[in-house]
Nucleic acid binder design. Sequence first.
DNA 1: TGGTATTAGTTAATCGATTAGGCGATAGAC
DNA 2: GTCTATCGCCTAATCGATTAACTAATACCA
Lengths: 324, 324
Amino acid sequence: MKKVSMQDIADKVGVSRCTVSLALSGKGRAKRVSEALCDRIIQTAKEMHYEPNELARSLRTGLTKTLGVVIADISNEFFGELSYHIQKRANSLGYNIIITNSDEVPDKMLDSIRLLINRQVDGIIMVPTNSSIDIASRIISLGIPFVQVDRFIPGLNASYVILDNYKASEALTEKFYAEGCRRIAMVKHKTSALNGRSEGYEKFMKDHKIYDGDLVLNIRYSDEAGDLKIALDRLLSLSKKVEAVIFQSHELFLNGIKYIHDRKGIKIATFDKSAAYSIVDFPLVFVEQPIKEMAYAAVDLLVGHINGQKDVVSKVFEAIIRES
Amino acid sequence: MKKVSMQDIADKVGVSRCTVSLALSGKGRAKRVSEALCDRIIQTAKEMHYEPNELARSLRTGLTKTLGVVIADISNEFFGELSYHIQKRANSLGYNIIITNSDEVPDKMLDSIRLLINRQVDGIIMVPTNSSIDIASRIISLGIPFVQVDRFIPGLNASYVILDNYKASEALTEKFYAEGCRRIAMVKHKTSALNGRSEGYEKFMKDHKIYDGDLVLNIRYSDEAGDLKIALDRLLSLSKKVEAVIFQSHELFLNGIKYIHDRKGIKIATFDKSAAYSIVDFPLVFVEQPIKEMAYAAVDLLVGHINGQKDVVSKVFEAIIRES
DNA sequence: TGGTATTAGTTAATCGATTAGGCGATAGAC
DNA sequence: GTCTATCGCCTAATCGATTAACTAATACCA
């Protein structure tokens, strides 16, 4: 039941375990182990169903060929898809990943990072939160290659891959404006790493002199459902009728849409793509992120850093506006 | 930049690295290292920001405190949630997890398993497919603790945690029957690990003498969209009007619902819960799996096996039928 | 004072790999 | 016939921890 080690192969073939290591790693010829012996060792390894012990290998080489991924919550559709593509890309570059959920809680995030570091991951991809600057700085000061994705901590000297949320929300607003809407509302969280999504809107509205504070709904995280109901009820009963509503996030949309009954009279827009959108029976505009491309970019950046690329790089992706 | 090891602490305090190990592991007193020295070592470790190297520890102890999880696709809502809860439970029991996506492709599944084994995981939780019996047998023959979840391979001597799909589909059919429906259709894949979901239906329909082959739609994986359109169009134009449609899976539902236009005239039911269901504006019946409980059960079973529990156990959970 | 317990901490082996350097044997050159 | 190259494989150190076994020192008791 005990697993087969190089020593076992060495014993069987009658050589030292180092020779086995050389033969199996393909460095046999370079290190002058005869062709015949290499073959015999490889053959024996196969017969014995030898599988290398990655722990031992990593301990010795100092490389784990593993990337750590810190996200908020894998059960979230966006992060699920993000992780999926990160894994695909990492795999194709010879890396594996360990995913940890922080639930956006600083302590859990710290635990996640500690875990990843103790497991000697070669680099870390992280979705940062407002409060993770200390954690991120620590990773950097330890010299561990590091890339932020989806969001970034302003002022932190680290690479990141994000969507141009500002531009996307501006484009969304402009689209509704072009369709004749002037009363365009924004449903947003009070403070959020995603506030670029409301700033682009504000900019456009103000530039076109149609901004109205009544149209901006600030929802607290703490009582999202309650706030949403109250705010949307008030919004929809304004005397100057609302013509369009933009939700800052998929979650706000899912929770808020319940309170909008006239879904065909009011134009609705939201961020992120969801399998759910294929079953809605009202026109819905949504901002799709090129998740796969962003995931690939993040992995490529990180692997670049692992391979010695020192410069901090930021990649900003353009959103795609779609209608269902 | 180099990380701090026990040796570094030992040098600083002026003792051997073994004493450091004893002190930090809490075995100091039992192994007769003086209280004062223990304290001094612990203090120094803190000052030096010592973090243990888990690779070295695992290599030595033979335990990684890591569980491997093999699922089809983490970007899938169900698996995302499943992994999330598996991770939570594992964490609370002192384990971490490594998630791998098999995409239901045997070769990838094999790679996943190999990876997990080479990383010396203490146990494996896997969502098996029709074709994974060889892979599963190999895990078992290697003596690696193993639990199947969501599905199971018939005849394999391994523990599993599943939903009682048979009973759920029977209950679903019965519900519609009680509401007066007699023409109840089933949209299913031809062969699927989830066919319990159609067998319960068939049993009920036959028992009540209302079974009709025209009401059972067999969809191929290979051309799901095309098959769905053709099959549903034909179904909905039958002279004996269909009164209810049951989808075997969330994916079939998402893809098929497009072709059912009269969503309020026909009763619709599907499996699994989705965030999307909160935004549908027609009555929808769905079978909710107690994912969290199932995930916890799977982890608990696996950890039990790791701790020497040899008996094969199967846990079958009851579905909850909900309406939105 | 001699013999046994107890306490405190060290030595050395080990987990399974990698890799620089070493050593003996054969072959070719002069 | 000796000297040097080349070949083929092994020795030994190393990564960072754990732990059984051992030594040395002190305490206790009659």
